[in-house]
Simulated scan of single mutants.
Amino acid sequence: MTQSLSVLTGATAGATESFVVVPFELVKIRLQDKASAGKYNGPIDVVKKIVAAEGPLAMYNGLESTMWRHVLWNAGYFGVIHQVRSLLPKRETKQGQMLNDLIAGSIGGTFGTMLNTPSDVVKSRIQNTTRVAGVKPKYNWTWPSIALVAKEEGVGALYKGFVPKVLRLGPGGGILLVVFTTVIEFFEKMKAT
């Protein structure tokens, strides 16, 4: 495995994951919006109202921005863990290897979060926009929306919510890598017997 292949496989996994995640993200965003408080009576009601007002394909509003969010995080995460693992001293014990994975995964999760937060911010804005026929939404595509937010609100606005997000995804990336490695080793041992 090379670093380039790690980045490519991570990006591919992120793009694939987006197709599954986007309808759930859309429902979550609509339920979390202050302006929508009281508008919906739960997740099923959100789906019913979106489909009725905007059509069934509206459940995939924000697919492009969700894809960028996942592609950037996964590419950053897997690319960084590959590099960090190669720089860490080799550990002879299982606990030492778990520590290396925790460190590499946490650094990867932090880096991935730094890369994808702007696309995550605009994804929420895109998904929180009710589509009206004949009206171009203010936030529609990821990169123009990132430029618009930076222009109107400053670059800092692209990192709203960064601290709680990185506190979740930094250590979460470490835990993810430890669990992944442990499960792979478990299945390899089972296969060998």
Rank of each mutant, 00 (worst) to 15 (best):
V21P: 00
P23C: 08
F24W: 14
F24D: 07
F24S: 11
L26T: 01
L26R: 01
V27L: 07
V27K: 00
K28P: 00
K28F: 09
K28M: 14
I29C: 04
I29A: 04
I29P: 00
R30G: 01
R30F: 03
R30I: 04
L31R: 03
Q32N: 14
Q32W: 06
Q32I: 12
D33S: 13
K34T: 09
A35T: 06
S36E: 10
S36Q: 10
A37V: 12
G38I: 11
K39Y: 05
Y40P: 15
N41Y: 07
G42I: 03
G42D: 04
G42A: 13
P43W: 12
D45T: 09
D45L: 04
D45Y: 06
D45R: 10
D45H: 12
V46P: 00
V46M: 03
K48W: 07
K48M: 06
V51L: 06
A53F: 12
A53D: 11
G55P: 02
P56Y: 13
P56D: 04
P56F: 14
L57W: 14
L57K: 11
L57N: 03
A58R: 04
A58Q: 05
A58W: 03
L63Y: 05
L63E: 01
L63M: 06
L63P: 00
S65N: 07
T66Y: 01
M67S: 06
H70S: 09
H70Y: 13
W73F: 15
W73T: 04
N74H: 08
A75T: 01
A75F: 03
A75C: 10
G76V: 03
F78K: 15
F78D: 06
G79F: 05
G79D: 02
G79L: 02
I81L: 03
Q83E: 13
V84N: 03
R85E: 14
R85H: 12
S86V: 06
S86M: 11
S86D: 12
L87Q: 14
L87T: 10
L88C: 05
L88D: 04
P89T: 13
P89I: 09
K90N: 08
K90H: 12
R91Y: 06
R91I: 07
R91E: 15
R91W: 06
K94L: 13
Q95T: 15
Q95H: 08
Q95N: 13
Q95C: 04
Q95G: 08
Q95D: 09
M98L: 12
N100H: 11
D101L: 08
I103A: 05
I103Y: 02
G105W: 01
G105Q: 01
S106V: 07
S106C: 12
S106R: 00
I107G: 04
G108E: 00
G109S: 08
T110E: 04
M114D: 03
L115M: 13
L115R: 02
L115I: 07
N116W: 15
T117P: 00
P118M: 14
S119P: 01
V121M: 11
V122T: 10
V122Q: 15
K123F: 11
K123N: 15
K123E: 12
K123L: 15
S124H: 11
